[in-house]
Amino acid sequence: MSARNRARSFLSIVYLNGILPMRAQPLYLLNTIASPLAFLFFIDVASRGALSSFAITGGLILTILTTGTGIQADLVHYKQDLKFQDVVVASPVEAPIYVAGMAFSEFVYSIPGLAVFLLLSVGVLDYTVVGTLTLAGALVLIWGFSTAFGFTLATYFSDIREAFVFAPLISILMTTLPPVYYPITYIPASIRWAAYLSPTTYAADLVHRGLCAAGSACYEAPSAAATAVDWGVLTGLTVVLIVLAATKARWREP
């Protein structure tokens, strides 16, 4: 496939899976924003505004993570129920183009959520340029690993109900329990290691240090070594999951 044909292919998948459903059923857009906004409201009220900045950055992380992992439900539905993936496999469309098209069409759904939280970030948070770049970089990496993870999982599911079981579980394990919506110092030091089993903790660490560097919501002294470890783990995990998705996922059944 030439580069132009790949671009056509990609845009067509985004159009079919993202734009058309969004136009036909705009409520999908609200669906992606409901949980992050509910968390924001709850944390803001419960902390009397003290953790609002964490709730806003947590909302961004949750929105982008849901965008990535949400791909699994669509992929399973398209593969098992509609057999659309079979139509795609038996065509010139390559697996990376299909996954990228599906991932970007999921991204379309998250645009209102991201817009709301970005506006809140601009209005409420103090962020330096480095902090803003850190936030953007962390969100891109979360999107990358969660999409790759969602795709790999989806190829092993034989029923959409499995995806329905995993999606909320992933959300809880990666955003609700880990210190995404709250500072890591709230977790007792003896069990803090458990938080680092979730990749979102590394992203949240980076984002929270950005807040600290700008002089707001500082709960832990910034450390260059910890920042390097966070970037390293997050980038490494993203690369590993993308490679795993590209090599191990079942595009053709064994």
Binding site: L20, L82, K83, S91
Partner: peptide, 18 residues
């Protein structure tokens, strides 16, 4: 092969929102 083939799988259904 994939560049040259097209398939209607058994029990396949079209995407509903189009």
């Amino acid at each position: 092969i994939r560049r040259r083939i097209a398939m209607v799988p058994q029990e396949s259904r079209p995407l509903y929102f189009a």
